[in-house]
């Protein structure tokens, strides 16, 4: 029997330990997520990596939960996890599919942690995080280019979760046009929705409007209505706790000003 080696990663409050007899697979995971490796994972999920014999029928990725069994499925992976043991197996063709697996898995696990995964750029300033939710083409990459590199959490996907009484914004390894991302987090200061414009202007928006915009930017792969109901509860709490604005922005900053001058938290 081939001895198993392990590699652990942590993205915010979620940790996973992958086990495999294929050292090359684990090497690839280390190279894909260098900033998110950890030697001391906290309450990790243990996932045994096995080989997927052949691609499955094309279908959108999803998770489905029934009792203590969590199924995560896509054409390129097939996962079965036991919720009580926080362990299971994942069949993959290559380590390259783990990005999709992680996104699907995170959207499930974050339901338990009062969190969600957003299509959003995020940055840290003034000791807080500004998160810019938006779908493709909304301007996330443009805004990200205006942020100092050291402050950028991600230009594509941000993880939000509730920690005690505060909401936290966490950088993820999932990037868009910019390869820059940081395994860093900060208390969420403001949700800033984007609108391309000829001018810079920020206006506060009401909670229902914020909720609607947020839901359209939320990644979610559940199939059951109780899971969606839980997601709605999280969004309701989030927009109740955190201020939201609509930022009209240009691709260039006003002379002598930086982004947080135009968008204070």
């Amino acid at each position: 029997m081939t001895p198993l080696s392990t590699v652990s990663i942590a993205i915010g409050p979620v940790a996973l330990t992958f086990r495999s007899g294929q050292k090359e697979t684990l090497r690839q995971i280390r190279s894909m997520y260098p900033s998110f490796l950890t030697n001391k994972p906290v309450r990790p999920w243990t996932v045994d990596l096995l080989s997927l014999e052949k691609n499955r029928p094309a279908a959108a990725p999803f998770f489905r939960r029934k009792d203590n069994a969590l199924k995560l499925s896509w054409s390129r992976f097939d996962g079965d996890l036991d919720l009580s043991r926080r362990a299971g197996r994942l069949k993959i063709r290559s380590a390259g599919v783990l990005g999709t697996f992680l996104r699907v898995f995170l959207t499930h696990e974050l339901l338990e942690l009062n969190g969600l995964l957003l299509h959003a750029a995020g940055a840290l300033w003034e000791g807080k995080a500004a998160v810019f939710p938006g779908r493709s083409g909304s301007g996330k990459s443009t805004i990200s280019r205006l942020v100092p590199r050291a402050s950028l959490l991600s230009d594509e996907i941000i993880l939000l979760y509730r920690k005690g009484t505060r909401w936290m914004a966490q950088g993820t390894p999932f990037t868009g046009e910019s390869p820059v991302h940081h395994n860093a987090s900060g208390p969420l200061g403001r949700l800033v929705f984007l609108r391309k414009s000829a001018r810079w202007d920020r206006q506060d928006i009401e909670r229902p409007d914020a909720a609607r915009r947020l839901l359209r930017c939320t990644l979610f792969f559940g199939r059951n209505d109780p899971d969606y109901a839980r997601l709605l509860d999280i969004v309701r709490r989030l927009v109740g706790d955190v201020s939201a604005s609509l930022l009209h922005f240009r691709p260039d900053l006003p002379p002598g000003r930086c982004l947080h001058d135009c968008c204070p938290l």
């Binding site: 229902p208 609607r212 109901a229 709605l232």
Partner: peptide
Amino acid sequence: LAQRKIAGTLFIV
């Protein structure tokens, strides 16, 4: 369906 009211507005998924 999943339904919730958020700040008085009904959301249905």
